[in-house]
Computed example of a mutant assay.
Amino acid sequence: MFDTAIRRRDLFRGGLAVTAASYSRVLGANDRLGLGVIGCGGRGRGDMRIFMKQTGVQVVAVCDVYGEMVDGAQQMAPGARAFTDHRKLLELKEVDIVLIATPDHWHAQTAIDALNAGKDVYVEKPLTLRIEEGPEIVKAARVNERICQVGMQQRSGRHYIQAKQEYIDTGRLGKVTLARTWWHGNQAHLRRAPERLRQKPSNLDWARFLGPVKWRDWDPQQYWNWRAYLDFGGGQITDLFTHWIDVVHMFLGQDIPVSAVAAGGVYVYKDGRTAPDTINVLLEYPNDLTATFEATLAPGLRGAAVEFVGTQGRLWIDRSRFEFQSAEKGAQPVVVKAPSPDMTVEHIANFLECVRSRKLPNADVLIGHRSAQASHLGNIAYLQKRRVRFDPVREEILPL
């Protein structure tokens, strides 16, 4: 039970004793931060590149199970030490902060190990692969007084903040009863393993990649397109819906559903994947709110956005702009474009600022847990083919 791991009032307390005075490595604005990168694939190296552009950050170590990925990271940071086991990287005293960009099934253990080692952590979303993993990561962050930011970059996006302030906080949208979200045609879930991976490369540690997952012989697709397999990730629900349901939580201040239903399946890409290529989820929240997610990989539809429907209008938002449409007859839509195409820059900057100030970051670990938890409820409902009821106080799935 979440409440027995840590008292909820302590989790919500702004400072939570994470102060500069209690910080074992007190850092000034000009001190160098040593970065360790765990997971050096495309997303990991992309985040790493942004970290390297920030003042006072130096990549001192990189880690991946595949030598080719390590080589790519070391080309970017020639002086960085290389590892295949993240635990060895965490032993380095010169590592102050850690970027975790592994496949989802490694997020929980790697984050807990890093937090217990006294490192501040930036972990890509979703925070967890399983719903029960979240409270343990939150506990590790709080007990060790570490900063932990989850990669839900909309929390730092200026046009997201602006839309919330102007249309939600002021009440201009009225009472919001429906939040619609969708993400169609995401190509990251359709990756085909290159020919060079037909045979397992000698510098790829397959057993280490599997980690906590039960053994299976080398499968290039499961390695290369791991998002399509529920042993390694939560499919489109946790990979995509986690971003959008976090926007709903951010805007409306409700972050614990009371029920979930879902339907879908592998309707198009019958290539051995276990995550559905078409999925619909509906979450119900306590205060007269439902939130939906719709996604398909079928080629006929593309696009991703969130739409809030209120009694006085609707608010549509994606990563490039937001649009407000008043319910008044004849009203013209208000369109505001995003000032920055990549909110990850602001999100990483916020993390580094909080590492130095010891304030909770925009997407603190508890926020990341709650958004992943909502997504997990959708997956559980899909897999169990039933309406899942959830206790919002104890944060537990209720029995049938």
Rank of each mutant, 00 (worst) to 15 (best):
R192Q: 12
K119E: 13
C40K: 00
L360K: 15
A61G: 04
V335H: 01
D391H: 03
P361M: 07
N350W: 09
R370F: 07
H159W: 01
V143G: 06
D47Y: 13
V213N: 03
E91V: 08
K337G: 14
E195Q: 13
T292W: 02
D96C: 04
S326W: 06
V143W: 04
V143T: 13
G265Q: 10
G233Y: 03
A305N: 05
A179G: 11
M1G: 15
W106C: 12
W316E: 11
D364Y: 03
I112F: 08
V345D: 05
R130Q: 08
G234Y: 06
G34F: 02
K175N: 12
D271K: 06
G14R: 15
G185F: 01
N144F: 07
S371A: 14
E323M: 13
N287S: 12
E91T: 12
L297G: 02
R45M: 04
C354Y: 09
V60F: 02
S357L: 11
Q187C: 04
V213H: 03
V247F: 04
M250V: 09
V176S: 03
N362F: 13
L360Y: 11
S340L: 13
M152K: 12
T296E: 10
A82K: 12
W183T: 00
R158W: 07
R7T: 13
K359V: 06
C148M: 12
P212Y: 01
R13G: 10
K200S: 10
A80R: 00
T19V: 06
Q199A: 14
P276A: 07
V281F: 08
E166P: 09
T292V: 00
V334P: 09
G34A: 07
T344V: 14
D318T: 02
K125S: 02
G211R: 00
T128G: 05
W182D: 08
A114V: 07
E166K: 12
N280K: 13
W226P: 02
